[in-house]
Design a protein around this nucleic acid. Structure first.
Lengths: 249, 249
DNA sequence: ACAAAAGTGTTATTTCTACACCCATGC
DNA sequence: GCATGGGTGTAGAAATAACACTTTTGT
């Protein structure tokens, strides 16, 4: 069993990743079930002393999902004292999640940087648990289990940020397959926003962003009119991400 | 001379505050001129082990400006390795900014949480330097001196964030005097955005937000028509901050 | 009475919203 | 041929943008 080597890590600093996926018309998050416990946790990690924090977040993402070079954004820094719960490290030792030698390291004041990622469900290999967890799985946002420490709060904040970002940025690349239909894209938006949108207006608005390419193919096999398959125009997509949609002033 | 007691501080974690003020139709930032150096720095500090990071940022703000309970927002976490410049702590000791006993503590990997604040220039007492600085002063954004380490980058990022926030949130409270005229408010927006706006359309849009109260008084003393004085409707202002202006979806 | 800046109104254009109808496909 | 969901158009309302004239004030 390989426990972590705390010597090479920045003390008191952790990373928590809220990894969103979209599948079967539901928004899901990747969660880890802690070893010997009913509690779940966000995938996370620590920061090696010679690495950028942003890069370490990308490592966490890749370790759990196998994907890299995709949307991953720092969204909040969690620095409250109340995050540090008395007796928590002791519990971790008891459950064999960390080694006794490391307990002292975990007793220190910890702060955490929150990241959220959008990943295409289908591109992800079987989610990988680590040595602290017995399971790593996609869980629907509507059906969340009890989470460790303040991870519930972190998740909520990430979701809230994502909803706000919808107004300024395109989403969908990385969250949808390479090609997708307009109704699928709409379902994604509706799921993130938690409300229904008008089909016709959605289409018009989305097309006006000018980030979609009509592939001239259709998705067949359904017992109704075959919908057109679109893909993102990556150049325009990334430009839109940079510049944002907002034009208020 | 009182140097810091590093024992009670969270190691490797600092706070940097970008404190914006608005004066004489210019956006300004509060900067500290380092002792025995031509370099300037953002006001900042460290985090006591038993304090929330957000609260410590408020302490930094109050120490420098004397104001409290005003807009102060965490905007980014800076965690790149490149922030930690070889030989920097040594320089700090040489310039008597930190004590030799503390040099080792400063040699550790440091990460930083960036905050920005909006403060009303006139409410601020004479900006207070600390034991690391010989001067604390308002500096125009158009006329920035050379800044220490990555502080220039942090400042730039804060300004960028502020510009984006304009679209979602009201600003002005804390940045303008208690009462102000519509042209003054417009000047603030123009300064932050770095572009001119149409007087008539600005007024209409601003009034449509429904966060202003007409005080029925005028600012006299100018050799032209006396402009109406407004103040913010605080309840509605804070509601607008919560909910945001954006209606995109 | 004049310069300088505040205040107000209107119109054309664009965007948003709320709709209803037709079209393909598999059963 | 019918149920299901995809695709398109349009008219009214609202927001935006561009623009010109009148008012107040100190000198």
């Amino acid at each position: 069993m390989t426990f972590i080597n705390t010597d090479e890590l920045v003390p008191g600093l952790s990373i928590d990743c809220v990894i969103f996926g979209f599948h079967e018309y539901e928004l899901k998050v990747l969660l880890m079930k802690m070893k010997n416990s009913d509690l779940w946790a966000l995938p996370g990690g620590f920061v090696r002393k010679d690495r950028n924090v942003d890069d370490e977040a990308a490592v966490v993402l890749e370790l759990r999902t196998g994907v890299r070079d995709i949307f991953l954004r720092q969204f909040h820094f969690f620095g409250n004292v109340s995050r540090n719960v008395d007796g928590h490290p002791e519990q971790l030792v008891k459950k064999e999640i960390i080694s006794p030698e490391n307990q002292a390291w975990f007793e220190e004041r910890f702060v955490s940087v929150g990241y959220y990622a959008l990943v295409e469900h289908s591109k992800v290999q079987e989610p990988q648990p680590d040595h602290t967890s017995e399971l790593c799985a996609w869980v629907s946002l509507n059906d969340l289990p009890e989470l460790m420490l303040d991870h519930g709060l972190i998740l909520k904040k990430a979701h809230h940020t994502l909803r706000l970002e919808l107004n300024n940025q395109p989403i969908g690349l990385n969250l949808l397959p390479e090609t997708f239909t307009m109704p699928e894209l709409q379902a994604l938006y509706e799921t993130v926003l938690g409300k229904e949108l008008d089909r016709r207006n959605f289409r018009r608005k989305m097309l006006s962003y000018d980030i979609l390419i009509d592939t001239n193919e259709k998705r067949t096999g359904t017992s109704h009119k075959a919908p057109t398959l679109y893909k993102f125009d990556r150049d325009k997509y990334f430009t839109a991400m940079q510049d944002g949609f907002s034009t208020a002033w």
